[in-house]
Write a protein that binds this DNA or RNA. Structure first.
Lengths: 207, 207
DNA sequence: TAGATTGTTAATCGATTAACAATC
DNA sequence: TAGATTGTTAATCGATTAACAATC
């Protein structure tokens, strides 16, 4: 497989989301220039990105929304990583469970873990909460490949280590440390404070 | 001013965070190769990035942690955008308030807004909550330049519009829509579902 | 001094944009 | 048909990496 860039994958996910909304609104066809305006980029980039998903549009008519959505979904779909575990049921962890509960997505959170005894055994936003000590077993037995880390930074690395030891291949990291992981492990960092400071910097240094 | 790339700014913020921890641990000097290993990049990139902050290290001795942290902070600091408002006090909004409460940062959230009457007037994690109708006034009167959007996607655009009309220059957008804004407005998108799907894709397509 | 690290320029790499023949 | 849009290649742009003289 020829390597696909993170940027392209991210945009494909965005196109898919836009296409789903168009389909719901009964839009049958869309041009690259319309899709790019909804996605906030350029028609050339849309066409370039769509090259890799193996669906071709029709000149003058554009792309069939349903067909294109299907093609992108097939391209993106990773059946081995459609289940995720979440570790850390503080406010952020719960906000994510709540958020995912209301959203349709190919990725489902299947279990949550925490160290606090009063949370263990409870069901929070439809997700069962387990003792952190069971994390490794659960991940291994259920062949989970995707982990979400919402614990304080002091313990984030140790959680990542347990995840990786037990087969997790990809981590969505909300803690504000850089995880040390082997090169084959994918880490996506979502550091809210860093993003806020970035936004502050560009408040008048933009342009 | 010659334009500084988003990537560089993001890494400078990260370096600063790392430097603060080093200073706390009483580390006086650091080499570019050590800093890069903590930041997860390369020595060459660290040195390249540091060119713009106007502090120069000493060959063989490396960088003085305190001096470098100071230089980066001065470079990044934007006194006009050190105050932010947050709109949307669902789980995510509260998680952010709670998170910011415990973290030291140059950017402070000074007010929160929601539509739910039972929240208005309350103080949540030290932040006063106002009626959403007061958002425009508050932003204009207090010259707020930075806004955080944690409302459902249906209303995100209208909140952004109010913010921008009243002087906000930079938005941290947690809703999963692409905001339409004038080119001089900076928008940083933090779409959790998109990031999760990206992580899923790369769970075995990485490398 | 010899060895290591810096700042900066040049080279490389990768991603975006432009251009245009093919198509409907 | 004439006009518009596609898929794809080539050109451009920007970001990362390499190289190395200057420095301590």
């Amino acid at each position: 497989m020829n390597k696909i860039s993170k940027h392209t994958v991210q945009r494909l996910i965005l196109y898919r989301k836009i296409l789903r909304e168009l389909i719901k609104s009964n839009v049958k066809h869309i041009f690259s220039h319309k899709l790019s305006s909804l996605a906030g980029n350029t028609p050339a980039q849309v066409r370039r990105d769509l090259m890799i998903v193996g669906y071709t549009g029709i000149p003058v008519k554009g792309y069939e929304t349903k067909e294109l959505e299907k093609a992108i979904s097939e391209f993106l779909y990773n059946p081995e990583a459609d289940k995720a575990v979440l570790v850390g049921l503080g406010h952020l962890g719960r906000a994510i469970l709540n958020y995912c509960d209301g959203v349709e997505s190919f990725v489902k959170i299947v279990a949550a873990f925490d160290i606090k005894q009063d949370l263990i055994g409870r069901i929070i936003y439809k997700i069962k909460c387990y003792d952190i000590n069971e994390l490794g077993n659960y991940v291994r037995k259920n062949k989970i490949k995707l982990g979400i880390i919402t614990v304080p930074q002091e313990v984030a690395q140790s959680i990542a280590d347990i995840m990786i030891e037990n087969g997790i291949l990809s981590i969505l990291n909300f803690s504000n440390i850089k995880l040390k992981v082997p090169p084959e492990i994918f880490v996506e960092n979502l550091d809210m404070m860093l993003s806020l400071e970035k936004a502050s910097y560009f408040a008048n240094n933009n342009k």
